[in-house]
C-alpha cells in the first residue's frame, strides 16, 4: 500500500523550493518536500529554477566584493570603538541630566565669580571702583549653556511607507496587517510619571485640558492621554 499523493505542497511552493535548494529545511520538512516532488515531477522545473537563481546571485555578488578599507581606516574604527566602549558616558547622565548638571554648574560658577569680586573689593579698598558694577547674570549664561544639550537630542526615527513590507493581506474583512522592521535601533525609553513635574493646568496652552509639564529639552519622551469618563 502506498501513501496517497499529496494534493498541495507543504507550504508556499516557491519559498519552500528555494529553502530546499539552499539546504535550509530541517529533516522533516525536507522529507515532505521530496515526497511532494515525487508526486509532482512537473514541479522539478521550478526547483531547478530556484537552484539556478541562488548560485547565480551568489557568483554575481562574489565578483563585486565591496572595496576593502585600508588598514589605517580599520585602525581608526577600532580606536573609536575601544574609546567609546572602554570609556562610555555615565549611564545615569542622560542628556536631560547633563543639562541639569550644566545649569547647576553655570549657577555655581556665577555665584563663585560674585563672591570673588566681592572679596577682591573688600581686600582692595584703594582700587578704583568698578564703573556700574553689574551683578552676575546667571540666567543668560544658563540659556547659553543649554544650547549644546538641545543639540544632543537625536531625531526620533519614524518609519516611512517604504520601511514596511506588506506580506499578506488575507481577505477583505480582516483589515490590513502591516509587518515591518522596528524603526528604532533600541528600546525607546519613555519617561514615567515620576520623571516629570506637573504644574497647574493652563487652559490657554491646553484648550482641551491637560497637564502643564516642566520638562527639559533632553528629557525622555512621554505619552499621556486623558482618562475616560
Amino acid at each position: 500500500m502506498t501513501a496517497p499523493a499529496q494534493p498541495d505542497p507543504p507550504g508556499r511552493l516557491p519559498e519552500l523550493l528555494a529553502a530546499y535548494a539552499d539546504g535550509e529545511l530541517d529533516a522533516a520538512a525536507r522529507e515532505r518536500v521530496e515526497r511532494w516532488l515525487a508526486d509532482h515531477p512537473e514541479a522539478r522545473e521550478q526547483l531547478q529554477a530556484q537552484r539556478e537563481l541562488s548560485p547565480e546571485n551568489w557568483r554575481l555578488w562574489q565578483s563585486a566584493e565591496p572595496p576593502a578599507p585600508s588598514e589605517a581606516a580599520w585602525a581608526a574604527v577600532r580606536g573609536s570603538v575601544e574609546g567609546e566602549v572602554c570609556n562610555p558616558p555615565a549611564e545615569d547622565a542622560g542628556p536631560g541630566r547633563r543639562k541639569r548638571l550644566g545649569l547647576w554648574a553655570a549657577g555655581g560658577v556665577a555665584a563663585a565669580a560674585a563672591v570673588a569680586v566681592a572679596w577682591w573689593a573688600v581686600r582692595n579698598p584703594a582700587a578704583p571702583p568698578v564703573p556700574n558694577p553689574e551683578p552676575p547674570r546667571p540666567v543668560p549664561e544658563v540659556v547659553r549653556g543649554a544650547e549644546p544639550a538641545q543639540a544632543e537630542v537625536a531625531a526620533l526615527p519614524i518609519a516611512s511607507d517604504d520601511d514596511v513590507e506588506l506580506l499578506r493581506v488575507p481577505g477583505g474583512a480582516v483589515g490590513w496587517l502591516v509587518a515591518g522592521t522596528h524603526p528604532l535601533p533600541d528600546v525607546l525609553v519613555l519617561a514615567g510619571p515620576d520623571d516629570v513635574e506637573l504644574g497647574d493646568l493652563d487652559p490657554d496652552e491646553w484648550p482641551d485640558g491637560g497637564p502643564k509639564m516642566i520638562t527639559g529639552p533632553g528629557d525622555a519622551p512621554m505619552i499621556f492621554t486623558t482618562k475616560g469618563r
Binding site: G11, R12, A18, E24, N57, E165, L167
Partner: peptide, 11 residues
C-alpha cells in the same frame, strides 16, 4: 517562514 518569504521575493 518570514525569512523564506522575504528571501524568495528578494531573489
Amino acid at each position: 517562514g518570514t525569512v523564506m518569504s522575504r528571501l524568495c521575493y528578494a531573489r
